[in-house]
């Protein structure tokens, strides 16, 4: 991919890019992975604790405890984002705080706060899902395609 892009460039630009690549401060990938693993793991641990709490103290089973747990985590994220803490956690943890459902909540709430100055309807209303919208669109679409394949295989594939 990167090589393909490079071929389109002029020799001068290619030379400049290799010059730039040598001097660029690289992302500390290994360190970032370790941080992401532990922060992501901690968020999951909190989620598990909340889930267990719901099963133990309320009338939930292992199957039905999922939804209130996700709602609780997103609720906590909402406060952390509003108080300006979540972006600092995100800078430290990277994928660790972006991949769990809390990252999704943060993307929605951060956009909502950002566009507050443009008003509630045209600002918050229309820009709230600016970051999270693509995830929903492609999530729903890929679920639809998979369901279609499954239906075809069962009906005519004889599975």
């Amino acid at each position: 991919m990167a090589d393909k892009k490079k071929k389109k460039l002029t020799p001068e630009a290619q030379q400049y890019q290799s010059y730039q690549e040598k001097r660029e401060v690289k992302r500390p990938i290994f360190k970032n992975c370790i941080k992401a693993f532990f922060v992501g793991g901690t968020i999951c641990l909190i989620g598990q604790a909340i889930s267990t709490f719901y099963i133990y103290y309320f009338d939930f089973t292992e199957q039905t405890a999922g939804n209130p747990t996700v709602a609780t985590l997103i609720f906590i994220t909402m406060f952390l984002t509003g108080f300006g803490v979540y972006d600092r956690i995100g800078q430290f943890a990277g994928a660790g705080s972006a991949v769990p459902v809390t990252g999704f909540g943060n993307a929605v709430v951060a956009s909502a706060i950002e566009h507050r100055t443009e008003g509630f309807v045209l600002g918050v209303g229309s820009n709230m899902l600016k970051l999270a919208g693509p995830v929903i669109v492609y999530g729903v679409f890929s679920a639809f395609v998979v369901a279609l394949i499954k239906t075809i295989l069962i009906k005519w594939g004889g599975l």
Binding site: G90, Q91, A95, A110, H115, L131
Partner: peptide, 17 residues
């Protein structure tokens, strides 16, 4: 930030550059 990058409170990790 709002125009060219992410919302200010979004928790995306910025690279060292």
């Amino acid at each position: 930030e709002r125009q060219f990058r992410y919302p200010t409170e979004y928790g995306g990790q910025k690279p060292p550059t």
